[in-house]
Design a protein around this nucleic acid. Sequence first.
RNA 1: GCGGACGUGGCGGAAUGGUAGACGCAGGGGACUUAAAAUCCCUUGAGCUUAGCUCGUGCGGGUUCGAGUCCCGCCGUCCGUACCA
Length: 840
Amino acid sequence: MSERFDPSLADGRWQRVWDERQCFRADDASAKPRSYVLEMFPYPSGRIHIGHVRNYTMGDVLARFRRMQGYEVLHPMGWDAFGMPAENAAMEKNVHPGGWTRANIATMKAQLKRLGFALDWSREFATCDPEYYGQEQALFLDLYAAGLVYRKESAVNWDPVDQTVLANEQVIDGRGWRSGALVEKRKLSQWFLKITDFAEELLEGLQSLDTWPEKVRLMQENWIGKSQGMQFRFAGSNFDGGIEVYTTRPDTIFGASFVAVAAEHPLAQGLASNAAHAFIEECRRGGTTAAELETAEKLGFDTGLKVAHPLLPGTELPVYIANFVLMDYGTGAIMAVPGHDQRDFDFARKYHLPIIRVVAASTEDADRPFGDEAEAGDGVLVHSDFITGMRVAEAKAAVIARAEAEDWGQGQTVWRLRDWGVSRQRYWGTPIPFIHCAACGVVPVPKAQLPVTLPEDVDFSSPGNPLLRHPTWKHVSCPDCGGPATRETDTLDTFVDSSWYFLRFASQPADKPFDPAEIARWLPVAQYIGGIEHAILHLLYARFWTRALKRIGKIDIAEPFASLFTQGMVTHETYARTDPSNGQPIYFSPAEVARSGDGATLIADGEAVEIGRVIKMSKSKKNVVDPDEIVAKYGADAVRWFMLSDSPPERDLPWSEAGIEGCARFVQRLWRLCGQYDAAAQGENPALDRKRDQTVAAIAADIEALSFNKAVARIYELTAAVEKAPASASRSAAIRALLLVTAPMMPHLAEELWAQIGNSGLIAEAAWPAVDPALLVEDEVTVAVQVKGKLRDTLTVAKGTPSATLEALALASDKVQRALDGAAVKKVIVVPDRLVNLVA
RNA sequence: GCGGACGUGGCGGAAUGGUAGACGCAGGGGACUUAAAAUCCCUUGAGCUUAGCUCGUGCGGGUUCGAGUCCCGCCGUCCGUACCA
């Protein structure tokens, strides 16, 4: 056995062995219990990031652990391969998006392989494979047939220079992020998925996801945004027609003092006066950034129109156009109750409108004046005719009942969630499988003609969608009438691609998207791991897609991810100097800096650099480390070990050179320890046996809970205990156990040592060590002795020592007597096996 | 503004209401070595009148025999969100 473990030789050797023996191939026919462990698949941007390493290491530990526990594990990997960066690269570097993507996949796959992840590569696919996106087109057609896909005119952000549609995130201060051109609003006919049909069940389904982070569930809940209230009609009293408004507080209807409509509301748009037009224009110019909204003043315009209050005959309310009313929520018009809504309150103060109290703490408080704020809380209705004296909830129901009985309004649920627009005017995505025919309209591509593949010969030299200007691709004959027709040139949002990839991993027949029986065997995903940035869109879309497929009878599960875990980021110190010419920081990469103690110097000139905050790794701050470089320098296991150590997995992990060196040292420490392994050693060490089984059991619990940092600490403890113990059969057994529990985390080292100590099989295929339940219970315990709650002594006694004995032992202690200082003991609290507290 | 999470040594962090600081990093001292690396041993919350004692988990209260943990009120940091009627 050589003196040091050499990962540069061992890592590759074991990776090849695992590959050759197909150790991590999931067997569809297995009779074992199954476990599907999945990490969010990467976008092939070029190289893997340290964040991927952390994400995939966590999943890998869980997958390997489950395998050792006797599960048939599905742990696949693939590529979220469509998207804008490939097109941007095509435009900038004059390469084909497909070629660029494939090259990136090859690079990143090799990088992942060097980390030794226990992945079933036989199921690998990229979403840009026609075999995948063709099946996606088939599913899209199925959803269309079921009425869950439709087309409508919708406004988009149009960049007139790049000739492209921009996502909201790509519009910065009203200009295209790439071209800098002023963005226009354009109406385009776009494809939508009816996610709003599922709003209620997507919301209710969150209840069942009790192992999802509370934070994610809350974010989704807010995004879906259910609100219950009443929609009703104010009849115009000096104009024809009326105004439909929506409110969540029908109970406060007697406190309404005006009605407000959005600037885009048809009623506002229909006004003839120049002043009205000027005001509407002013509203449109108003900024929409968060900062602007926060300071935005409530502005209004009195239209001169009046409406009749439905419950107060003879009472008329003025109609304002207000800048705080949104056209795309509710009906775009509100009843304003200044006393009990802060916005209405601000507005009423400004325009000297009545502020009427209709909710108070009690009926005696009915005429208490308002302070500086509206009172939106619960209470008792006052000054409110037939609902006076009711509590808010009761009054809401009473007003709705009255409105429905008299037919001027009804209870109404309003959602914030909007239907999912999936059209993208881009090349590098899944072609939407429809054909436009002048005679037949919009016609689905017959399934037999799928996949509708992307043309290879595309031109990125001018802006706009290459599919639109391709000379031949879009020209086809109509599947219905055979006449000349054109293909849809929009492609699908890439979130569609990631909404069902987890199903395709579990089952990938050639002739259909998946086999329902195979899906039933593997799904739902037992543990899904990824970044918090996908808390809403990806996770909501995947949940929707799964439910939609269930509704149309394709699968039998409603929720795709039984358990979700969102891991923290990998962070790093920043190193910078201030540029004297402009006061801006100049950043240096960790490789350019020598770190020592609490300072750092630039290697190039030996002068000090400032150590900045520990923040997310980013290219602009240069605080990045490259996974390849650190794997080459320290070996895959040290890197994996670092990813699991110290920080709890949901929190940020600060990368440090000292930290990874500590991990590399531990790799060698285990290596040396196993060098002392003696298969023939005799003799027992009961204390070590106990420590071994307790540690094994605790680590299993820690991995189950994804508390990898705690599992790592326990491995350190067991290692120290084994190092101190003299040779014995117990010590040899402890070394074997140590290797087995370390194997999911440092598989190459464990594999190498497993073979060294004389095992013929692979540790990757070994079983998790069994523990003796009797050994998990301590036979000797340390009992704390307190005087008035302060620790004064400890006792080491047999477990189960009677309380009376403990009390006597405590009183016999010199330290206790000194602390009591002659005072009489008034009360004694004994917690068996834990503590004695003497109260003087 | 609203919602959420978090706040413990020099740092990352442990701790079913029961011995605060496990484990790692960094620091200090020593051993081995011609020397270095590697390794091993000891030590490391603060203070004090140092066989010991006092203080100590963001701040102020409270509940309890006992609070990092539970309750009330603040402060700070981070994340999400935004005029949603």
